[in-house]
């Protein structure tokens, strides 16, 4: 009985997000007649795919009580590595992508090791990783925007269609579903939540927190690599400066989706809705001819607002009363 009640509450929470999303769509379609056109919505879809794929792995970092700020740089570097392997070294595209994925996993592994075994705050380690990965990407690509014209198989990942739908959508749905199952229905998912909620208790019940955390960073970097490959294939270019800003978008999506940055809770479905919302907001700003400067400004405000609404504890009265009126799923 309790279980179903909890499930209903969780569903309500996810649905509440859904209502906000529909509200946002309604507002945007009133504000701009171009919003509800097929061409525009498919534009939104591309950015949602990239952010969604990143979120599917990224979410494990905050769930285990950490953060991964290197996802943007990792994605940019992945495109550049893949291009070098395919078009300069001349490896066929499938093994080239496998090597690229392995590189991503390795970098996630390093992030995890430095965070856990050396007790360095995750945001410092991953911020440093963001910096040096960007440097490596610049060094390898010589700072140029590289156009990728071949091989065909690689380009098909981004622009190809299957049963009338673009392939990136299948990839996003696949990784989101996999991530959801991993979080909710496997031992690893339970461990990740336990480590994030209470590390000492998790350790006492036989979970190895370090190993779980390292795995979380590997997952995060791997998802970022996949996103980077899809992005490179979609835009047919690899560019180091593509890196900037994605981490803020991904954090926004995850936080809006109800994942706590303090660890111990998270929702992949929520993050997906968050990703759609971020896509709509960015698209809306473009359609309304807002200067690009509005982008980080709005993202920053949305993060703070979402955190305030998620957060328990010391709250000013007006937020508490607002939460009561909206129906607090935490109670």
């Amino acid at each position: 009985m309790n279980l179903t009640a909890a499930k209903a509450r969780q569903l309500l929470k996810d649905l509440r997000l859904f209502f906000v999303l529909i509200l946002l769509m309604a507002v945007l379609s009133v504000l701009s007649p171009r919003f509800l056109t097929l061409g525009n919505l498919s534009n939104v879809l591309w950015s949602v795919c990239i952010i969604g794929i990143m979120c599917s792995g990224f979410i494990y970092a905050p769930i285990t009580g950490g953060i991964d700020l290197s996802v943007g740089s990792m994605a940019a570097l992945a495109g550049i590595i893949a291009n070098v392997l395919m078009n300069q070294v001349g490896i066929p595209w499938v093994p080239a992508l496998v090597i690229t994925l392995a590189c991503g996993m390795f970098i996630g592994f390093i992030n995890g090791i430095v965070t856990t075994k050396f007790g360095v705050p995750a945001f410092i380690v991953t911020m440093a990783a963001k910096t040096y990965l960007f440097g490596i990407a610049m060094l390898v690509s010589n700072g140029d925007m590289i156009t990728i014209m071949k091989p065909k198989g690689f380009l098909a990942i981004g622009v190809g269609k299957l049963f009338g739908l673009p392939i990136p959508i299948y990839i996003m749905v696949a990784v989101i579903v996999a991530s959801h199952i991993l979080l909710k229905h496997t031992v690893f998912g339970r461990k990740a939540i336990a480590v994030g909620a209470n590390e000492v208790a998790a350790k006492l019940s036989g979970v190895d927190p370090d190993r779980t955390r390292i795995m979380a960073y590997v997952l995060s970097a791997t998802a970022a690599t996949v996103a980077g490959i899809v992005m490179a294939s979609l835009t047919q270019q690899a560019y180091a400066a593509n890196a900037g800003g994605y981490e803020l978008d991904v954090i926004t999506a995850v936080v809006v989706g109800g994942t706590s940055l303090m660890g111990g809770s998270g929702s992949v479905a929520g993050a997906l809705i968050g990703a759609v919302m971020v896509g709509f907001i960015n698209n809306g700003l473009n359609l309304l001819n807002m200067p690009s400067s509005f982008h980080p400004l709005v993202t920053g405000v949305v993060i703070l607002l979402a955190l305030l609404l998620n957060q328990g504890g010391k709250m000013p009265k007006f937020i508490l009363s607002m939460r009561k009126r909206l129906g607090d799923p935490g109670k």
Partner: peptide
Amino acid sequence: FKLPEFIVTLASRGILAGLALL
């Protein structure tokens, strides 16, 4: 609000970078 320092300052970094361009 007892929010983590890095996320607050990261958000204000985004806001300020936007404001600076604005």
